[in-house]
């Protein structure tokens, strides 16, 4: 590799853009994160507008996200009230997002090894030995604002997420599994080749 290539690569992977992190999303209606980082002037208007205190201002990290708004789904999911979408002075949050169906800040995935419903189904089919406390949970289904659209019970047991999932993270907030929740959000448009690629890969092969 020539010196020029080295410099080019170093500059292109300069670690100041925002990072991908599971369960951490931008506010609803946010533009692609590359553009978001350039547009957001860190004015905290959206942070102020959020009545549920879900949006938080990020602090210093190894990257330059300092000051930008994030939803931390494992603390609290976004209620999709759409109060924050109309206040952004630079268009980092697209103000044309008014319906919760328009929102797409991430997509939920379920960990089949820890989800109570999945375990229940596995026991029922004889795949696993029954343990003490088997129960159907359905918390994620019941809390979803787009119940039956974004998430439904396949065969009456398996919670299944569809492409209508907004990524609000309410299911993550409610999931009773500790310490790592059985359901998590893969944020959209986060600039990290590997993990965002994972999401894109799933999309490509049609598994969303």
């Amino acid at each position: 590799m020539s010196i020029f290539d080295n410099i080019k690569n170093a500059l292109n992977s300069f670690p100041v853009k925002s990072t991908y992190k599971i369960n951490r999303m931008r506010p609803p209606g946010s533009v692609d994160d590359d553009l978001f980082m350039k547009l957001c002037i860190r004015c905290a208007r959206c942070v102020e507008a959020c009545p549920y205190r879900v949006l938080r201002r990020s602090s210093a990290t190894k990257n330059a996200e300092i000051g930008t708004p994030y939803i931390y789904a494992d603390v609290a999911g976004c209620q999709l009230c759409m109060k924050c979408t109309s206040v952004c002075p630079t268009g980092a949050i697209d103000s044309s997002t008014v319906e919760m169906q328009q929102v797409s800040i991430g997509v939920a995935r379920i960990n089949e090894d820890t989800c109570m419903n999945h375990l229940y189904a596995k026991v029922e089919s004889g795949e696993l030995e029954p343990t003490g406390n088997m129960a159907l949970c359905n918390s994620c289904l019941n809390t979803c604002p787009l119940k039956d659209d974004a998430i439904y019970l396949k065969d009456g047991i398996i919670p299944t997420i569809t492409e209508k999932c907004t990524g609000c993270g309410l299911c993550v907030e409610r999931c009773p599994i500790k310490p790592i929740k059985a359901i998590y959000i893969i944020p959209k448009n986060m600039p990290d080749a590997e993990t965002a690629g994972y999401y894109n890969y799933l999309k490509r092969i049609g598994k969303q």
Binding site: I41, R42, C43, A44, R45, E48, A49, V87, P89
Partner: peptide, 16 residues
């Protein structure tokens, strides 16, 4: 709403 980076007073938006 807002801060002195960008303030919104009754719909009038004022930014730094």
């Amino acid at each position: 709403k807002g801060t002195y980076i960008s303030l919104d007073v009754g719909g009038l938006s004022i930014s730094d």
